[in-house]
Computed example of a mutant assay.
Amino acid sequence: MRLATFNLLHGRSLTDGLVDPDRLTAAVTALDADVLALQEVDRDQTRSGKLDLTALAARALHADHHRFAAAVVGTPGEQFRPLTHDDDGHGEPLYGIGLISRHPVRSWQVTRLRAAPVRSPIYAPGPGGGLILLRDEPRVVLAAVLDTPHGPLT
Protein backbone atom coordinates (compact mmCIF):
# COMPACT_ATOMS: atom_id res chain seq x y z
CA MET A 1 0.00 0.00 0.00
CA ARG A 2 1.34 3.42 -0.95
CA LEU A 3 0.59 6.32 1.43
CA ALA A 4 1.43 9.93 0.55
CA THR A 5 0.90 13.44 1.82
CA PHE A 6 0.86 16.55 -0.37
CA ASN A 7 0.76 20.21 0.68
CA LEU A 8 -1.16 21.73 -2.23
CA LEU A 9 -0.41 25.39 -1.37
CA HIS A 10 -3.99 25.95 -2.66
CA GLY A 11 -2.95 24.48 -6.04
CA ARG A 12 -0.24 27.07 -6.71
CA SER A 13 2.95 26.00 -8.50
CA LEU A 14 6.24 26.75 -6.79
CA THR A 15 7.84 27.53 -10.16
CA ASP A 16 5.52 30.27 -11.45
CA GLY A 17 2.81 30.78 -8.81
CA LEU A 18 0.01 29.76 -11.18
CA VAL A 19 -2.84 27.36 -10.44
CA ASP A 20 -2.97 24.91 -13.35
CA PRO A 21 -5.42 21.99 -12.94
CA ASP A 22 -3.60 19.91 -15.58
CA ARG A 23 -0.25 20.34 -13.83
CA LEU A 24 -1.82 19.51 -10.45
CA THR A 25 -3.49 16.43 -11.94
CA ALA A 26 -0.16 15.27 -13.38
CA ALA A 27 1.60 15.74 -10.03
CA VAL A 28 -1.05 13.77 -8.13
CA THR A 29 -1.12 11.03 -10.80
CA ALA A 30 2.67 10.67 -10.48
CA LEU A 31 2.30 10.01 -6.74
CA ASP A 32 0.17 6.92 -7.54
CA ALA A 33 -0.93 6.78 -3.89
CA ASP A 34 -3.54 4.41 -2.53
CA VAL A 35 -4.18 6.90 0.28
CA LEU A 36 -3.39 10.59 -0.14
CA ALA A 37 -3.61 13.22 2.60
CA LEU A 38 -3.84 16.84 1.38
CA GLN A 39 -3.04 20.06 3.23
CA GLU A 40 -3.73 23.72 2.34
CA VAL A 41 -6.66 22.75 0.14
CA ASP A 42 -9.04 25.23 -1.50
CA ARG A 43 -12.63 24.69 -2.53
CA ASP A 44 -14.54 27.42 -4.41
CA GLN A 45 -11.72 29.96 -3.86
CA THR A 46 -11.20 32.63 -6.52
CA ARG A 47 -7.41 32.34 -6.15
CA SER A 48 -7.56 28.70 -7.29
CA GLY A 49 -10.11 29.07 -10.08
CA LYS A 50 -13.07 28.04 -7.87
CA LEU A 51 -11.88 24.43 -8.20
CA ASP A 52 -12.60 21.62 -5.75
CA LEU A 53 -8.97 20.55 -5.35
CA THR A 54 -9.79 17.40 -3.35
CA ALA A 55 -12.18 16.15 -6.05
CA LEU A 56 -9.62 17.01 -8.75
CA ALA A 57 -6.94 14.98 -6.93
CA ALA A 58 -9.35 12.06 -6.40
CA ARG A 59 -10.11 11.95 -10.13
CA ALA A 60 -6.37 11.94 -10.87
CA LEU A 61 -5.96 8.85 -8.66
CA HIS A 62 -9.14 7.17 -9.95
CA ALA A 63 -10.22 7.02 -6.30
CA ASP A 64 -13.93 6.87 -5.50
CA HIS A 65 -13.52 7.71 -1.82
CA HIS A 66 -12.56 11.23 -0.79
CA ARG A 67 -13.53 13.94 1.62
CA PHE A 68 -12.72 17.59 2.10
CA ALA A 69 -12.85 19.10 5.59
CA ALA A 70 -12.80 22.88 5.79
CA ALA A 71 -11.10 24.65 8.66
CA VAL A 72 -12.32 28.10 7.64
CA VAL A 73 -14.88 29.83 5.47
CA GLY A 74 -13.22 32.59 3.46
CA THR A 75 -9.61 33.08 2.45
CA PRO A 76 -6.73 32.82 4.95
CA GLY A 77 -4.62 35.97 4.94
CA GLU A 78 -7.68 37.96 3.94
CA GLN A 79 -11.09 37.59 5.57
CA PHE A 80 -12.22 34.30 7.09
CA ARG A 81 -14.21 32.79 9.94
CA PRO A 82 -13.94 29.40 11.63
CA LEU A 83 -16.10 26.61 10.29
CA THR A 84 -18.13 25.08 13.09
CA HIS A 85 -20.09 22.30 11.36
CA ASP A 86 -19.53 20.17 8.25
CA ASP A 87 -22.54 21.74 6.51
CA ASP A 88 -21.46 25.38 7.08
CA GLY A 89 -20.05 27.46 4.27
CA HIS A 90 -21.73 25.85 1.27
CA GLY A 91 -21.48 28.19 -1.68
CA GLU A 92 -18.69 30.18 0.01
CA PRO A 93 -14.92 29.84 -0.46
CA LEU A 94 -13.48 27.21 1.88
CA TYR A 95 -9.97 26.26 2.99
CA GLY A 96 -8.89 23.08 4.76
CA ILE A 97 -7.60 19.56 4.21
CA GLY A 98 -8.56 16.49 2.18
CA LEU A 99 -8.21 12.75 2.34
CA ILE A 100 -8.43 10.41 -0.65
CA SER A 101 -8.54 6.61 -0.67
CA ARG A 102 -8.67 3.95 -3.35
CA HIS A 103 -9.99 1.65 -0.61
CA PRO A 104 -13.60 1.84 0.62
CA VAL A 105 -14.15 4.04 3.66
CA ARG A 106 -16.04 2.53 6.59
CA SER A 107 -16.27 5.80 8.48
CA TRP A 108 -15.03 9.38 8.57
CA GLN A 109 -14.15 11.45 11.63
CA VAL A 110 -13.75 15.25 11.61
CA THR A 111 -12.31 17.03 14.64
CA ARG A 112 -12.18 20.83 14.79
CA LEU A 113 -9.38 22.61 16.64
CA ARG A 114 -9.30 26.24 17.73
CA ALA A 115 -6.51 28.55 16.67
CA ALA A 116 -3.53 28.76 18.98
CA PRO A 117 -3.86 31.73 21.37
CA VAL A 118 -0.35 33.03 20.54
CA ARG A 119 1.16 34.31 17.32
CA SER A 120 3.65 32.13 15.43
CA PRO A 121 6.97 33.39 14.07
CA ILE A 122 7.15 32.88 10.30
CA TYR A 123 9.98 33.77 7.95
CA ALA A 124 8.73 35.72 4.91
CA PRO A 125 11.23 35.71 2.01
CA GLY A 126 11.84 38.58 -0.37
CA PRO A 127 12.16 42.35 -0.08
CA GLY A 128 10.60 43.62 3.09
CA GLY A 129 10.48 40.04 4.38
CA GLY A 130 12.03 38.64 7.49
CA LEU A 131 10.59 37.27 10.68
CA ILE A 132 6.94 38.20 11.18
CA LEU A 133 4.40 37.12 13.78
CA LEU A 134 1.18 35.69 12.34
CA ARG A 135 -2.08 34.92 14.07
CA ASP A 136 -2.90 31.24 13.96
CA GLU A 137 -5.91 29.89 12.07
CA PRO A 138 -8.42 27.29 13.21
CA ARG A 139 -7.35 23.76 12.25
CA VAL A 140 -9.20 20.58 11.38
CA VAL A 141 -8.31 16.89 11.64
CA LEU A 142 -9.75 14.36 9.18
CA ALA A 143 -9.48 10.62 9.79
CA ALA A 144 -10.99 7.59 8.09
CA VAL A 145 -11.30 3.87 8.76
CA LEU A 146 -10.47 2.13 5.48
CA ASP A 147 -11.48 -1.35 4.40
CA THR A 148 -8.24 -2.73 2.93
CA PRO A 149 -7.31 -6.24 1.75
CA HIS A 150 -5.21 -6.50 4.93
CA GLY A 151 -8.05 -5.50 7.22
CA PRO A 152 -9.25 -2.17 8.60
CA LEU A 153 -6.78 0.70 8.61
CA THR A 154 -7.21 4.05 10.35
Rank of each mutant, 00 (worst) to 15 (best):
A30Y: 05
L31C: 06
V35H: 04
A37I: 07
L38M: 06
Q39N: 14
Q39L: 07
E40D: 11
E40G: 05
V41H: 01
R43E: 13
D44W: 14
Q45F: 02
T46F: 15
R47L: 09
K50F: 12
A55W: 10
A57V: 07
R59T: 14
R59N: 13
A60T: 09
L61Y: 09
L61Q: 08
A63H: 08
D64W: 01
D64Y: 05
H65S: 11
H65R: 11
F68Q: 12
A70R: 15
A71M: 08
A71K: 09
V72M: 04
V73P: 01
V73N: 08
G74F: 10
T75E: 15
T75C: 07
T75G: 02
T75A: 10
P76A: 07
Q79K: 11
Q79E: 15
R81D: 05
P82Q: 11
P82S: 13
P82C: 08
P82A: 15
P82F: 07
L83P: 03
L83D: 03
H85W: 03
H85D: 14
D86F: 04
D86L: 13
D88H: 08
D88V: 08
G89R: 08
H90L: 13
G91H: 05
G91M: 07
E92Y: 10
P93M: 08
Y95E: 09
Y95D: 11
Y95F: 14
G96Q: 01
L99A: 06
L99V: 07
I100Q: 00
S101N: 02
R102T: 06
H103Q: 09
H103S: 05
H103R: 03
H103V: 03
P104F: 00
R106S: 09
R106H: 13
S107V: 06
W108M: 05
T111P: 00
T111D: 02
R112F: 01
A115Q: 08
A115P: 03
A116Y: 12
P117G: 01
V118Q: 12
V118S: 04
R119M: 12
Y123D: 15
A124G: 02
A124Y: 10
G129D: 00
L131W: 10
L131T: 11
I132E: 13
I132R: 15
L133R: 15
R135F: 03
D136N: 12
E137D: 09
E137Y: 10
P138H: 03
R139Y: 02
V140R: 03
V140H: 01
V141A: 08
L142I: 05
A144F: 01
V145C: 04
V145A: 10
V145N: 02
L146Q: 01
